[in-house]
């Protein structure tokens, strides 16, 4: 109980840290979504990053930096293991496999008492994560995504997203691109897990389930998957809103749900599509082109 109270206070006073952390996760998901990979593996990656880094800092007494790196590598390795067999298949099998992965990790975390503390989790984790760590990671991330988008790699990724058959016939190794992006996504989420663990004093299996994965998907999708700033906008919005609605727990859930539904219904291409529509209508008056693409696809 004490831990939960401590976590409550920590998360309330550290809303900025939380926004930064969630933005980082949002970019991790953005990488996967940018090549049409609907990943529910975030919870699993974060759990791997969190538990492994906590083990390294608390049990083995390693410094924070190598522990975070190790957490990130765990996430990346897991992504390679899941991605390699499943990414060649069409349809939603990838989504199902990533979901299955997150559940496996959660169940293991729940039962491997000696390593994870089981259902009780691990408490009094030293608070090593500093705000500047998160800022730095986020800046690097934005630079990477921005540079990628401006290069021929970004062009290939955009082609994969819209029509992977075309990408293939133009010489893009779609499988290798998808796998690399997914591994990068695992790396980021693993790193975020390590940061999260050393931010909250406490980790437990409940922090990393399906809800965590779907929340993480919400950030970039809500913010818009076509804009560089989309993930940040979505993450900050969904992080600050519940804090602002803290006056009533149940009412908050209802209001929050209603708000998200409203955003989705009125801005079906994400919050940042407001800007895009305005720009387009200023030029040629046809904002419909972008939305017409998925339907002409086979």
């Amino acid at each position: 109980m004490n831990a939960a109270v401590a976590q409550f206070i920590a998360s309330y006073s550290n809303i900025i840290d939380l926004c930064l952390l969630n933005s980082l996760i949002a970019y991790g998901l953005f990488l996967a979504l940018s090549a049409n990979m609907f990943s529910l593996a975030t919870g699993g990656f974060m759990a791997l990053g969190a538990y492994s880094s906590v083990y390294l800092t608390m049990e083995l007494g390693l410094p924070f930096a190598p522990a975070v790196l190790a957490g990130a590598i765990c996430g990346a390795a897991a992504a390679a293991l899941i991605g390699a067999p499943v990414l060649r298949l069409r349809g939603d099998y990838f989504m199902l496999a990533t979901f299955g992965f997150t559940e496996v990790v959660r169940v293991i975390a729940l039962n491997w008492d000696s390593f994870t503390g089981g259902a009780l989790g691990i408490v009094s984790i030293p608070r090593y994560t500093q705000t500047w760590h998160l800022v730095l990671a986020l800046i690097v991330m934005v630079y990477v995504v921005h540079t990628l988008r401006g290069s021929y790699f970004g062009r290939a990724i955009a082609a994969i997203k819209q029509d992977d058959v075309v990408a293939q016939t133009m010489g893009v190794n779609v499988f290798a691109y998808r796998l690399s992006l997914f591994v990068a996504s695992g790396f980021i989420c693993g790193m975020a897990g390590a940061f999260a663990a050393h931010l909250n004093y406490f980790i437990g299996p409940g922090d990393f389930g399906l809800v965590r994965s779907v929340d993480a998907l919400t950030y970039p999708i809500l913010g818009g998957v076509n804009a560089l700033a989309g993930p940040v906008v979505g993450a900050v919005f969904t992080t600050i809103l519940p804090e602002a609605l803290r006056f009533s727990n149940q009412l908050r859930e209802i209001l929050m749900g209603a708000l998200v539904v409203a955003v989705v219904l009125y801005l079906p291409d994400g919050a940042l599509s407001v800007l895009k529509l305005r720009r387009r209508s200023g030029k040629s008056g046809s904002g419909k082109v972008a939305t017409a693409t998925p339907r002409t696809k086979q």
Binding site: T218, V225, V260
Partner: peptide, 14 residues
């Protein structure tokens, strides 16, 4: 409105 199917996930979750 031509929204992406991912938006359905977000909205149905909400």
């Amino acid at each position: 409105r031509g929204g992406h199917r991912w938006m359905g996930l977000v909205a149905s979750l909400a």
